[in-house]
Amino acid sequence: MIPYLPHIAAKITLLKSDGKGNGRNRPVQSGYRPAHLVKDDYLTTGIHKYYGDVMVQPGDSVMGTITFITPEYYPRTLWIGRVLTIQEGSRVVGYAEVTQIYNDILVKTD
């Protein structure tokens, strides 16, 4: 298996199910691959790796990294403090607040 280098570090928060289709009922672990809204009109898959390989329960926050798919298609879209929506299809299941950016192509420069 080829190791994936992370593109960002983030504080990742999973939402509890709200009974209206948003949030999650079940925990996740490292390897979770939800979609992330990186631009107003662009969702991309990202692989999560949680520090300590913990199970993340709905309603909890954890620090970890995210490795995105094809970041060259959405360059200069991230900055420290940016909050990304985490989705499963159209359902919002959480948020990721960018704390560090490892891939320079993603850093917003203006």
Rank of each mutant, 00 (worst) to 15 (best):
K39V: 03
P75W: 04
Q57V: 14
I2S: 04
Y42F: 15
H7P: 10
N103D: 15
Y42G: 00
L106F: 12
S61G: 13
I105L: 13
I12P: 00
D104R: 12
V54K: 12
D18M: 00
I80D: 01
T44S: 13
N103Y: 10
T44Q: 06
D110E: 05
K11T: 10
V98G: 12
S17N: 13
K20Q: 13
K39I: 03
Q57S: 09
I12S: 05
Y73V: 12
G59H: 01
Y42N: 11
R26T: 12
S90E: 05
E88P: 02
I12Q: 00
L84W: 08
P34T: 11
T67W: 09
W79I: 03
D40V: 02
I105F: 06
A35G: 14
T65P: 00
L37G: 08
I66E: 14
Q57T: 10
Y73I: 14
R24H: 03
Q29V: 11
S61L: 06
S90T: 14
G94Y: 01
D110L: 06
V38A: 12
G89I: 04
L43R: 14
V92G: 02
S17H: 04
Y95D: 09
S30H: 04
P27H: 04
G46K: 07
Y102W: 01
A10H: 01
G21W: 03
D18S: 00
E88N: 06
N103L: 08
M1E: 13
N103V: 00
Q100L: 04
